Simulated assay, not measured.
Amino acid sequence: MLMPPNKFKQALAQRRTQFGLFLGLANPISAEILATCGYDFLLIDAEHGLNDTRSVQAQLQAMAPYPVQCLVRPAHHDPALIKQLLGTGVQTLLVPMVDTAEQARAIVASMHYPPKGIRGVGTGLERGSRWNAVSDYFAKGAEELCLIVQIESRTALENLDEIASVEGVDAVFIGPSDLAASLGHLGQVSHPDVKAAIADALARISAHGKAAGVFCADATQAASFQESGASFLAMGADTGLLRSAALKLLAGLRPQSGADNASAGY
């Protein structure tokens, strides 16, 4: 059996623009529905969404028949958690809260077997190797791994050049909400200082030869970020899309109630 190719990693290397969504519902049915919609990637969020390794694997299995690429954001940098997620079959990790090059190098080590890294070997129990059905998994599996580090603090911006230079980091992703908070603008991702910092960071990442990404729920702003160097963009989340669609439907039936719900919720 052949190792599934990581087409997301291939697209990053070619700087082909990719659009995706975050998945926080922790449900294989909703994940499969979104897998039919034509997005380039879907990112299972285990940092803020209520996902664990079981729900991650179930969603990977649900989305496997479709061409969409599947990414996962873990809750933290723990090598044991990274090992488990790779065991479920995750090929691309987006790791949050990376502030230093030292942290980035530690994450790279967590994703690889010795002597390159510290990942434990247990392929006979793991979906990642298809329970040892993948021939030459130790070589082929490593080739398809993709690491995106997420920077979202003032400290990370200060260390961005060093982080982007770490071998084994394929891309750098900007988290606007936490970055805004770190810059003193909590809840103001559209603040001019935040937008300027993001644009500058995207350009710096690209200058280092790494793919740059960002979360952006505004299509107009997305075009601006692409001009600054972003080649992959997360355009929203399943939770937000569900709520927005429900409010829109209700507003069409009872305009006043729909408007009240919208303002109260946001």
Rank of each mutant, 00 (worst) to 15 (best):
N159G: 14
E143T: 12
D260S: 08
G117I: 00
L186V: 14
Y113F: 12
G38C: 07
H48I: 02
Q221N: 11
L242C: 13
A196V: 00
D99Y: 01
P67R: 05
G229F: 12
Q91I: 12
Q10N: 14
S182T: 02
L186F: 15
S228A: 15
R54V: 08
T88W: 05
G124H: 10
Q188M: 09
E162F: 01
I198T: 07
K9S: 05
A203D: 05
T36Q: 09
C70F: 04
D161G: 00
S228P: 02
K83H: 05
L12E: 12
R119N: 04
S55W: 04
F22H: 04
H185F: 13
S206E: 15
Y113G: 06
D200E: 15
I148R: 05
H208T: 05
H76K: 02
K116P: 03
A222I: 13
D161P: 15
A106F: 00
T220A: 10
S224Q: 11
K195E: 14
D78R: 11
L183F: 00
A197S: 08
L247C: 02
A142S: 14
A35N: 01
T53D: 09
K83Y: 02
D45I: 00
G213D: 04
A251I: 06
N261P: 02
A133C: 07
R105N: 10
V134D: 09
D200G: 07
S110N: 08
L233W: 07
I29E: 14
A46Y: 04
V95I: 14
G122D: 02
V172G: 04
L85N: 03
M1K: 00
S129M: 09
G24P: 05
L43C: 11
A246W: 02
K210W: 12
D52F: 06
S224D: 08
L93W: 06
G209Y: 00
G89S: 14
P114L: 03
Q188I: 01
D136S: 11
H48N: 02
C146E: 12
M63P: 14
L247T: 05
M63F: 10
V194M: 08
F225N: 07
T92A: 10
H208W: 10
T220R: 11
A223H: 08
D45A: 12
P67E: 11
R73Q: 03
P28V: 13
L50Q: 01
S257A: 14
A75R: 13
G120E: 00
D200A: 08
